[in-house]
Simulated assay, not measured.
Amino acid sequence: MLTTTNSDAAARSAEQAALYRLMTWLSPAFPVGAFSYSSGIEWAVEAGDVIDAATLRDWLAAMLGHGSGFCDAVLLAQAHRAASGHDHAALRDIAELACALVPSRERHLEATAQGRAFVEIARAAWPCDPLDGALAACAGLTAYPVVVGVVSAAHRVPLAATLHGFLHAVVSNWISAGSRLIPLGQTDSQRLIAALEPDVIATGARALIASLDDLGSATFRADLAGMRHEAQYTRLFRS
């Protein structure tokens, strides 16, 4: 007969708590203001680069695998590892690099404003002593992927789960922006989430084994979209 020990029960309870927190933090309902940003997709629609579900899927797959999606995933993974190992010097360097790599003013606002809101709400709802030291090492540099990695590490949420949950949340927000701009119906939006599943999994797997030396983007049109959005005449989104 199998018996459940107290340690098994405690481990299972810790896993369930970590999953609960991760689902909450990366839910569209978590108030970081993600719905206000399109990551340049609004300009891509205006310019005619994205006109339907198929072109949006291609645009997002490129952003995931060769642009900000992959870069953010690498930064998250490195921040999670540095915070888990209490390597505050490395964490400071990662936080600085994440802010320096953002290619436009509005994308910088998108990353730092969401990161700041994420930290403030997570600390208020889930106080955690190890988190304070890690955040102090970041010296107020609050790029969203970095602070998601730091907060998750402080609460001992596993890296792989955090990474894939983060990428799912990012893709979902991109699709939500696209659905309002093109526009798309709810069914097409869910089909896009399903179609991008292999891209999310592949990007997460690459990020788990990547180093900071692997950071780099080849999505020049998406970077230009973020810059040109700043001067777009009419717009719904902040980036």
Rank of each mutant, 00 (worst) to 15 (best):
T5D: 07
R12F: 07
R12Y: 02
A18S: 15
Y20P: 06
Y20F: 13
P28G: 04
P31F: 01
Y37G: 03
S39H: 14
S39Q: 10
D49N: 12
I51D: 03
A53E: 10
A53K: 11
T55W: 10
A61C: 08
G65A: 12
G65C: 10
H66V: 05
S68R: 10
V74M: 12
A77V: 12
A77M: 08
R81Q: 11
A82P: 05
A83N: 02
G85K: 12
D87F: 08
D87C: 05
A89F: 00
R92I: 02
R92H: 14
S104N: 10
L109N: 00
E110M: 13
Q114H: 08
G115D: 08
G115Q: 00
F118P: 01
F118D: 05
V119H: 01
A122F: 03
R123L: 05
R123Q: 15
C128E: 14
D132C: 09
D132V: 13
A134G: 06
A134C: 09
L135I: 06
A136C: 08
A137P: 07
C138A: 15
T142E: 14
V146F: 04
V148P: 04
G149N: 08
V151N: 02
T162P: 02
T162I: 05
L167E: 01
H168E: 14
H168G: 05
A169Y: 06
V171G: 07
S176H: 12
A177H: 04
L181W: 03
G185K: 12
S189C: 09
R191H: 14
I193V: 15
A194D: 15
A202P: 00
A202W: 00
A205P: 00
R206G: 06
L208P: 01
L208Q: 15
A210C: 02
S217R: 11
T219N: 13
F220L: 14
A222Y: 05
G226Y: 05
H229R: 08
E230K: 04
A231L: 13
Y233W: 11
T234G: 11
T234D: 13
R235C: 02
R238V: 12
S239W: 01
